[in-house]
Simulated scan of single mutants.
Amino acid sequence: MRMTLRQLQVFTAVCESRSYSRAAEEMALTQPAVSLQIRQLEELVGQPLFEYIGKKLYLTDAADALKRASADIFQRLENLDMQLSDLQGSLQGQLNLAVESSAKYFVPHLFAAFKRQHPEVNLHLSVVNRAQVIKRLADNRDDLVIMSLVPQDMALEFLPFLNNPIVAVAPPDHPLCSAGQLTLKDLEPYPLLIREPGSGTRKACEEYFQQKHAHFAQTLEVGSLDALRESVAAGLGLALLPRHAVSLELATGLLRELAVEELPLYRSWCVVHARGKRVSPVGQAFLAFIRAERTQISALAARFAGTLPGPHPGS
């Protein structure tokens, strides 16, 4: 086979966009040029790579196999580039990181601390819910992912590195804010705002409610963490949210943390990758940073949560 990297780049663009025309725009090519590259690849492979059903483009089994091989090739080339830069005394490259949406508030601060040690490393951050994180792990889309509730039915390596406290929050004029010590049962008469199916926070809370025999008859599903936080502030109900996600609102008084006896619910943030995965040099450096800098990470998290005033750790 005499495939070219350019052909594989075009093929990958078609796979991701499921459209010849969108792939052409992305690659700054004409649509006939994209079609020609795909036809040449199909001749080399000896099988069709795509098929149209209705107006939708689908990958054939041959395309799925070629897509996995292409991803492996490009990952190896990227790793080679990182290794060569490392040999020159400077770690360079891009860290492809996927995180659960409730971690998006803390992770940029974590990466900033890492970047102070490796200033030539850049970040590509994908923010998704737990279900999407699991799919990205299965598809080997990222160098590393950060999530809680690591699935036990997948072959994964994971490193817990930080507590993720989930707390009950309410608007400041809510009657429970002046009620003193509470239990989960005290929250049950009020509407509870919950995340969409697939959310890690929702899954953790539902399992905890079942364990504690807590039942909320009135629930309202809100499709993003930001919208849920604003819905609480608007007085639509209570919510259980990661404290990191509402630190600013708690500090400014826009929201209040309720003193619930059974809370916070603690889950650990973990950095995760597939078992046996060839982690890129940048990914390996990020893992080494997390292992070596637990004290700095804990201090950074405390400052981010508004409990430790002062400059950034390491600055």
Rank of each mutant, 00 (worst) to 15 (best):
E261P: 04
G93Q: 02
I297E: 04
P309F: 12
M27W: 00
E221R: 11
S231E: 13
A168W: 06
A23N: 01
Q47L: 12
S315H: 06
S21K: 10
A239P: 02
S224P: 00
V133P: 01
P242K: 00
T307Y: 10
I73E: 08
L125V: 05
A168E: 06
Y52N: 08
R22D: 11
E25D: 09
Y190T: 11
A63C: 14
V133R: 05
S35A: 13
T307F: 13
D72K: 14
H213M: 06
V121I: 02
R303T: 01
R256M: 12
L287P: 01
H215Q: 12
E25T: 08
L91M: 11
L123D: 00
M147C: 09
L176R: 05
E42T: 02
L77Q: 14
I290S: 03
K212S: 11
A245F: 11
T307G: 14
G314S: 10
F216R: 01
V167C: 07
A259H: 14
L97M: 03
D64P: 00
R68F: 13
L123W: 00
Q83D: 14
L228E: 06
N129V: 08
L80D: 15
L5V: 05
A179R: 15
L225F: 09
D72H: 13
Q37E: 10
P309K: 08
R141Q: 12
N79V: 04
Q94D: 02
P242C: 07
Q132K: 09
E293P: 03
D61W: 06
A33Y: 03
V150C: 11
L265I: 12
A131P: 01
A98W: 05
A234D: 14
A138C: 13
M82L: 00
L162G: 04
K203H: 10
R39K: 14
K135E: 15
E206F: 06
E25H: 05
L241M: 14
V167I: 14
F216H: 04
T183L: 07
E261C: 12
T295V: 12
I166A: 03
E43N: 11
R291E: 14
L240S: 03
A239H: 02
R195N: 05
S178A: 15
D143G: 03
F106I: 14
F158T: 11
E230D: 15
G310K: 09
E230L: 15
L187I: 07
Q88L: 13
T295Y: 07
R2L: 12
A28S: 09
V271C: 07
P264G: 08
A179N: 13
Y266V: 14
Y105K: 08
S247V: 02
H215N: 11
M3S: 05
T252L: 08
V121W: 02
R136W: 09
G89Y: 07
P108H: 05
Y58W: 15
